[in-house]
Design a protein around this nucleic acid. Structure first.
Length: 567
RNA sequence: GCGCCCGUAGCUCAGCUGGAUAGAGCGUUGGCCUCCGAAGCCAAAGGUCAUAGGUUCGAAUCCUAUCGGGCGCGCCA
């Protein structure tokens, strides 16, 4: 149950009885001495109603029906409502047999467009953000009972494939030597830039591909399959919930592109400009009175990615029946999507639904604050990053826990290393630019995945040592001392945090929540002996431990991070 | 030139539709392992929230300008 929403509803009802319709603006209290939640909406409501905020606050409390959940609701300062929850109410949220996450009352169909690498190249660190953040949001939406349709809109079409296929064709490589896709791409690029004959062959190959010439098509299929397999290996290694069925490549829309143009034409949206067919929407007017066009078809007749994106929107709205379509791409494409979304609405490709939401993320910068590149101007391959992460974690594990057998050490190193990389990315606000730093990305202390995994492992260790079967624990955890109350309050907030992320697509709030949880648990653990306690107290503290373990496991699971019982 | 995003502690970042004394991690300093795992805990130092105005009972948050950074802006994706 979403406690925040429950409180908001109660307070808004009370406000309404006072003759004011206004949002309650409930948030977790800014300071612990203010209680659990605070409602700031009364002040704004009083302002709008030209009433005295403190007087209105008193009236709201008089009419507030919250005795079942709050032990105290008080007016403070200029008109804050401070709310302290009852221990009993918190305990009711901490039932070991109840599901941790409640389903949405109105399940939606949500398309999540993420990862989307270009198949001409190897996946590199730049693909992490879309893949990891999109995956977390997809999992979260699913956990809330929404129907999620993953769409891996991979780039498998366009001029650069002509180059690769020509290289393929001229004996520059065969499928066996494609194990290093990046090197293969670079080799082809060098030839393209230096050999006129090769350049001509490349262009011819594009034409052959587009006209459906059988040989070219066959080679193209082989090439993208190799690349897709490479991606899948990385998805599996990363623990991304993407599979072959989620691939909806650009080329899949090829047949729909003429229809898109036709539809635009039919609605009088197309204008020819310098030979290209464009859509000029008044909302994209510049200061000088000209309009930034969306180019739907080039002067040579070729289509562009805007056209493909329009076709994709039509597919998502009409064939997939999406209520929402979320796009996890970098923020440089913000204007592109703004245009495409506007044109899609105008053309009727999307009606009232789906809501089209670009979920942008910032650029990756180097330590110097400049756009990130390696010394030779290249990029760091994803494989290399994950190798390094696992190697560092393996050293640490063998150091800290040498008694684990080799197989378990390797398993733990994977969980810790991969988890650290993912968490480093997930824990930051996605919209800000991202500073790539090995040390920071592979840190194992402080607010990191290993810290959360460690808290979880300690709980499992506790159960082992106490010979407690956590599955056999049942009932509610009852808080009675402050360390327990603090822990209980965090545990009770999972639902509201998860719902928040489903709405706005910012998984870093879930990370912050889990870190807070692990911190509160560790304090509880330091202050409240569990196994040394006796009888009902011991049983109760074991319930806190188990509820924490369940929440950590579920929360990390939503982020796509696996827990380990020993590390 | 126009547009979008950003500027918070030495470093990396939070700060939720304006709200109470701006918070974490790393790093630094000092404590804590005969005590359920020290990848941990406790404590301390550290901030004119880029700058200058404005709106407001109240501004890191909203508005304007300036400085600084990143990114976009008709036939790449």
């Amino acid at each position: 149950m979403n406690v925040k929403r429950l409180l908001s509803a109660r307070i808004e009802a009370a406000l309404k009885e006072c003759g004011v319709e206004a949002p309650a603006l409930v948030k977790t209290a800014s300071r612990p001495e203010y209680g659990h939640y605070q409602a700031d909406g009364v002040m704004a409501a009083a302002k709008a109603a030209k009433a005295n905020p403190r007087q209105l606050a008193v009236q709201v409390i008089d009419r507030l029906d919250a005795d079942d959940l709050a032990e105290a609701v008080e007016v403070a300062g200029p008109g804050f409502l401070n709310i302290r929850l009852r221990d009993q109410f918190l305990a009711g949220k901490l039932n070991l047999e109840a599901p941790l996450i409640g389903k949405a009352s109105h399940p939606q169909t949500v398309v999540v467009d993420y990862s989307c690498p270009n198949l001409a190249k190897e996946m590199h660190v730049g693909h992490l953000r879309s893949t990891i953040i999109g995956d977390a949001v997809a999992r979260i939406l699913e956990a809330l009972g929404h129907q999620v349709v993953r769409q891996n809109h991979v780039g498998d079409w366009g001029t650069q494939f002509g180059m690769l296929l020509a290289h393929f064709d001229e004996g520059g490589a065969d499928s066996e030597t494609l194990s290093d896709l990046e090197a293969y791409y670079r080799a082809a690029k060098v030839r393209f830039d230096t050999e006129p004959d090769f350049q001509a062959a490349s262009r011819a190959m594009v034409v052959a591909l587009q006209t459906g010439e059988a040989g070219a098509r066959a080679r193209w299929r082989r090439l993208i399959q190799i690349s897709l397999d490479h991606c899948q290996t990385l998805y599996d290694r990363l623990g991304a919930s993407l599979g072959p069925d989620d691939v909806m490549a650009e080329s899949a829309y090829n047949d729909a592109l003429p229809e898109v143009i036709e539809a635009l034409e039919h609605q009088g949206l197309l204008t020819e400009s310098d030979g290209a067919r464009c859509v000029f929407l008044p909302e994209f007017e510049r200061k000088d009175g000209s309009i930034t066009p969306l180019i739907a078809q080039k002067s040579d007749g070729a289509y562009l990615y805007a056209t493909t994106d329009l076709a994709a929107i039509r597919h998502r709205a009409q064939a997939l029946g999406a209520d929402r379509a979320l796009y996890f791409t970098d923020s440089r494409q913000a204007f592109h999507f703004k245009q495409v979304f506007a044109v899609a609405r105008q053309a009727g490709f999307a009606g009232a639904a789906p809501s089209l939401e670009h979920m942008p993320f910032g650029a990756m910068l180097g330590k110097d604050g400049k756009p990130f590149k390696t010394r030779d101007g290249g990029v760091i391959k994803l494989t290399a990053l994950l190798d390094e992460a696992e190697a560092r974690a393996a050293r640490l594990v063998s150091n800290k826990n040498p008694q684990l057998d080799a197989e378990e050490q390797a398993m733990v190193a994977r969980a810790v290393g991969i988890g650290a990389v993912k968490y480093a990315d997930l824990s930051k606000n996605r919209t800000s630019d991202y500073l790539f730093d090995w040390e920071q990305m592979l840190a194992f202390e402080g607010n990191t995945a290993p810290y959360l995994l460690y808290a979880y492992a300690r709980i499992q260790s506790l159960f082992r040592r106490g010979e407690v079967d956590p599955e056999s624990l049942d009932g509610e955890a009852q808080p009675s001392v402050d360390a327990e109350r603090d822990l209980a309050f965090v545990l009770a907030r999972l639902q509201e945090v998860v719902e928040q992320v489903a709405e706005d697509g910012y998984p870093h709030t879930l990370c912050a929540y889990l870190y807070d949880l692990a911190t509160k648990f560790t304090r509880f653990y330091e202050q409240c002996p569990i196994l040394a306690a006796e009888g009902a107290e011991r049983a109760n503290r074991l319930r806190f431990a188990q509820q924490t373990a369940r929440t950590l496991h579920a929360g990390l699971g939503l982020l796509g991070i696996n827990t380990v019982s020993r590390m």
